[in-house]
Structure formats: structure tokens, C-alpha cells
Amino acid sequence: MTTILCHYEGDLRCSASHGPSGSALSTDAPTDNQGLGERFSPTDLVATALATCILTIMGLVAERHTIALQGCTARVEKTMTTGGVRQIERLTVWVALPAGLAPDQIRLLQRAAEGCPVKRSLEGSVAMELHWQTLAATDA
């Protein structure tokens, strides 16, 4: 169990402290929801959690199988609903794998990403799409 302590600071801003490490972060309401948009919004953190979870789980698999994953990136786009209840409508993630991976390594990493705990937790509640590309040797 992990404990995170959150405080409302006023002006639609919150701070959070990660119990085990003491790391801190702040959130701000987005500009389209009465905030200043100067920090990650709570829903931005959900999108960030998905992308970083995908990278982390792939990193665990890469280490276990001695796959060089350095340079791998994930870009996530969050789309909010425009009518009705305000919520995340879709999360789209583009994963760029480093050059030089074998097809079986790519499939292994893709399976790992599809099973990341954040993605599993959001399935059925938020539409998600993962797109894959392999960087050319000059892009890495």
C-alpha cells in the first residue's frame, strides 16, 4: 500500500506528497475549466500515468530479456468530452521504439505495454489507442 497526501491550496490548485519518497507535485485546473493551466491537471496526470506505466512495464521486460530500450518514448494525447459530464473521452499513445529491435522483441514489448496496470485499470472506462513506430537509426 502506498499513501499519497493531497492538500487543496486554493485557486483550484492542489499539492501532493508521495509518502514513501517525499516527492511532491502540484496540480492546477486547466484553462478550459476555470484554472490557470500552469501545472499538470488531475486528468493530465491520468494520461501521464498511462504513458509512463507503459514505458516502465516495457523497461522491466526489456531488462529481463536484455533488450536495449534507451531512447524509447511515449507521447500521449488526452481528449476530454465536450458535452455532458466532464471526463476523459480518449487517451491516444504513440510509442516510439529504438532502432534495431527484432520483430519478436517488438511483439514482446507491445504485449507488455498492453498489459500495464494503468491501462488495465482504465479499460472499460476510457477509450485508449496505442500506436507503434520504430525510430530510424538517425532518429535515436
Rank of each mutant, 00 (worst) to 15 (best):
A113N: 09
I67H: 01
A24P: 05
S26K: 06
M128K: 02
C14Y: 04
V126R: 01
Q110L: 07
I57K: 08
S121K: 07
T27D: 00
V93P: 04
V85Q: 14
P30W: 00
T134H: 05
R90A: 13
D28N: 02
C53F: 03
T52A: 09
A127T: 11
A51E: 00
L50S: 04
I88F: 00
A49V: 04
A16Q: 03
V76L: 08
V61Q: 03
C6K: 06
I67C: 03
T82M: 05
A51Q: 05
E77N: 14
R90N: 15
N33I: 13
G59P: 08
Q87M: 11
E63V: 08
S23F: 09
R107V: 15
V95R: 09
V61C: 04
P30E: 00
R75C: 10
T27S: 04
Y8T: 02
W94H: 13
W132T: 04
H131C: 15
A113D: 07
A112R: 10
V46K: 00
K78I: 11
S26A: 12
D11Y: 10
M1R: 10
A29D: 05
A49E: 02
P30D: 00
S21F: 10
N33M: 15
G22F: 07
R120G: 11
H7R: 12
H18P: 06
G35S: 02
M58V: 01
V76F: 04
P98I: 07
T81D: 02
L5A: 13
C53Y: 07
C116Q: 07
G22H: 06
E9M: 05
Q133G: 15
R13H: 09
N33Q: 14
P42E: 02
E129P: 07
G83Q: 13
E38W: 12
W94A: 14
L5Q: 14
T31V: 13
L50N: 01
G84Y: 12
M1V: 11
E89L: 08
V76S: 07
G10P: 03
T92L: 06
T138L: 13
Q133R: 15
R86L: 00
G71V: 06
V126L: 02
T79H: 13
A24N: 06
L109R: 01
E123T: 14
P103H: 10
A68G: 14
R39G: 03
W94T: 15
M58G: 08
D44L: 11
L91H: 00
L12V: 00
A102K: 11
V46C: 01
G100W: 06
L12M: 04
A16L: 06
L12T: 01
A62T: 03
S17V: 15
A96R: 11
I54N: 03
G124Q: 00
G100T: 09
A62H: 04
A74Q: 07
H7P: 05
A74P: 08
E114H: 15
A49F: 01
L108A: 02
L130N: 05
S125N: 15
Q87L: 03
P103K: 10
S121E: 03
K119R: 14
Q110Y: 06
T66N: 10
A99K: 09
P20E: 05
G35E: 00
V76A: 15
